[in-house]
């Protein structure tokens, strides 16, 4: 995995972290029934940061990023995205969702709409963009993810890697300021992982604020400026990637890294 992204040199010139706060999470807690899934999470994300979140399954990493656009509701603490606090106010939720793009493990493209319609839907209905303009934006981003020729096909006709790139393009069409990735490569064949990671690296090079839940450690080393390790619903360790991989502090992190890199 490490070699894969090293084939390509990553241009870090635009990857500057600004002082502006993009996401602020303060003392956030979440329960599923009586099960305490997220415990006292504190996390501040500056604009332009690329954060990789890893950890064993069930550690709450997906739940954490799903709380950021309110796909999951938190019960205690504050989440402030782009200056807007997440509460049960529906208007705030829709506003944040239209500013925060998200890519899912299973793509979640709309199978009854063409690729182009998938991409133009939200700009037309949420942003009131004229159809023609929305289509131009969509084609621009489809070209960016290198599949403009698939625009008139339905998602079911595309390979997994292509579908995930469409999903990224679909999010980008809303011109989001923050992108969340929830295990974007976990459902893909090894041959398709690279094309999706390349797209994500390109995005990072342009300075997008990104939070990625992923086990692609090569990707983390190449683009992340911070790696967060979670276990049992809490942040166990965070550090910049070189230090995180070469010199993990916590025993739990060492065990985890030895298991995913050792084999």
């Amino acid at each position: 995995m490490v070699e894969m992204t090293q084939e390509r040199t990553v241009d870090r010139s635009h990857m500057q972290v600004s002082d502006e706060v993009a996401i602020e999470i303060r003392n956030m807690n979440k329960w599923y029934g009586t099960f305490h899934v997220l415990r006292d999470i504190d996390l501040t994300v500056q604009r332009g940061e690329r954060i990789v979140i890893c950890g064993p399954s069930g550690s709450g990493k997906s739940t954490l990023i799903r709380c950021i656009n309110r796909l999951e509701e938190h019960q205690a603490g504050d989440i402030i995205v782009d200056g807007t606090e997440l509460s049960s106010d529906l208007k705030n939720i829709d506003k944040i969702r239209s500013e925060v793009g998200m890519c899912f493990q299973h793509f979640n493209l709309f199978p009854h709409l063409t690729i182009l319609e998938n991409c133009t839907l939200a700009p037309i209905w949420v942003r009131n963009t004229p159809k023609k303009e929305a289509e131009e934006i969509a084609m621009h981003f489809l070209e960016k993810v290198k599949i403009p020729e698939q625009a008139d096909k339905y998602p079911g006709m595309l390979s997994g890697g292509q579908q995930q790139r469409v999903a990224i393009a679909r999010s980008l069409c809303m011109k989001p300021r923050i992108m969340l990735f929830d295990e974007p490569t976990s459902a893909l064949d090894p041959e398709m992982i690279k094309e999706v990671l390349d797209t994500m690296i390109e995005l990072a090079e342009e300075g997008m604020t990104m939070l990625c839940v992923t086990h692609e450690m090569g990707f983390a080393q190449a683009v992340a400026n911070r790696v967060i390790f979670m276990d049992q619903g809490q942040i166990v360790e965070q550090n910049e990637p070189t230090e995180f991989f070469n010199n993990p502090q916590s025993e739990r992190t060492q065990l985890f890294l030895s298991q995913i890199i050792g084999h």
């Binding site: 239209s98 500013e99 793009g101 899912f104 679909r170």
Partner: peptide, 9 residues
Amino acid sequence: EGADSLGLN
């Protein structure tokens, strides 16, 4: 979730 994440009401 796909629809929600795009900000559709």
